[in-house]
């Protein structure tokens, strides 16, 4: 593109004789530089949190390959060396019962992450169906269902968790996932409901209903793609929340029994370790737990930033 700028020369209001008669009325003064449109500097939040993703991936990989990294029974007690500080044989030391913390971290991580994922899958499934029913339902049903979620939110979730756990009996991985899952859906359900309320008047949804599309068809094809991005953040945060809750419960002695190793049950052993100065027993599982939670928070925040910037349906 070459723009030749042509400018009038002289004073146009008072043309002199020569100028009128002469040739020089306009003059080429050179190429006009066209600058690129100003580009907004890339925002910090636009970048993916690669460090967090890498750390989380490493931890997840370690847990998946627990049998390769730390073969054998993680519950094996080396009674000769309890509460041993990190050394060549036990990289992370041993706990009060002589179990290798290194092995327990990877095997226990499996349980913790599994609980996080299972509980989140359950709560997301409940939230999506509940929110969609509330969103497409008549006004009275919507009001009723939303009041129920508000009641649910107003009761401390720990109370409900303890109550449900008491009903379900002794905790195991599945029961604790169910308990955590059925207590953490209301916030997601509220977001889903709001999105569905907006979408259900869309003519493509009406058209789909006219063609005979059932509830699940419309949910999967029209609603889900639209609200998925906005609940993604909450879903990731839910995984984090479930892992943290499991640790809390285990630490309080309400969660998994001692023989099922998870990061939480490892921490629950650690109360005595504090008195003896065996820092590795509490610090190392704590470090892994906190690292996982921080990574998930970072990823969740990045997802939220992405959604806020990205194009919306309306």
């Amino acid at each position: 593109m070459s723009h030749e700028a042509v400018q009038p020369s002289g004073n146009p209001s008072m043309p002199t004789e020569d100028q009128l008669a002469g040739e020089l009325r306009f003059q080429v003064v050179g190429r006009l530089d066209v600058h690129d449109a100003p580009r907004a500097a890339a925002k910090r939040s636009a970048r993916l949190p690669w460090v967090s993703i890498a750390v989380l991936a490493l931890i997840a990989l370690g847990c998946l390959l627990a049998n390769v990294i730390a073969p054998g029974n993680a519950n094996y007690m080396d009674l000769a060396s309890p509460a041993k500080a990190p050394c060549a044989r036990y990289p992370f030391g041993t706990d009060m019962m002589g179990r290798s913390i290194f092995a327990m971290i990877w095997h226990g991580g499996r349980v913790s992450l599994l609980i996080g994922v299972l509980a989140t899958a359950l709560s997301t499934a409940i939230a999506v169906v509940y929110g969609t029913v509330s969103g497409v339902g008549p006004v009275w049903l919507d009001t009723l269902m939303m009041r129920v979620t508000e009641i649910f939110l107003s009761v401390p979730s720990l109370l409900i968790v303890i109550f449900l756990q008491a009903i379900l009996g002794p905790a195991n991985v599945v029961s604790i996932s169910i308990v955590l899952g059925v207590t953490s859906w209301p916030t997601i359900a509220k977001v889903v409901r709001t999105e569905v309320r907006q979408l259900r008047q869309s003519e493509y949804v009406v058209a789909s209903r006219c063609m005979g599309g059932g509830f699940m068809h419309v949910l999967v094809n029209h609603f889900a793609p639209n609200f998925l991005s906005s609940i993604m953040f909450m879903v990731v945060m839910n995984v984090r929340g479930a892992i943290a809750s499991e640790s809390t419960l285990s630490f309080m002695g309400l969660g998994l029994p001692l023989e099922i190793i998870s990061w939480g049950s490892m921490l629950s052993n650690a109360d005595r370790a504090l008195l003896t100065g065996a820092w590795w027993i509490i610090l190392i599982p704590g470090l892994f737990l906190v690292a996982t939670l921080v990574c998930m928070t970072n990823i969740g925040n990045a997802l939220r930033g992405k959604v806020n910037r990205g194009e919306r349906n309306l």
């Binding site: 869309s202 003519e203 493509y204 009406v206 058209a207 094809n221 029209h222 793609p225 349906n313």
Partner: peptide, 10 residues
């Protein structure tokens, strides 16, 4: 529908 913009899922 009238508005084909909203009658088709974007």
């Amino acid at each position: 529908f009238q508005d084909s913009g909203s009658a088709l899922n974007p």
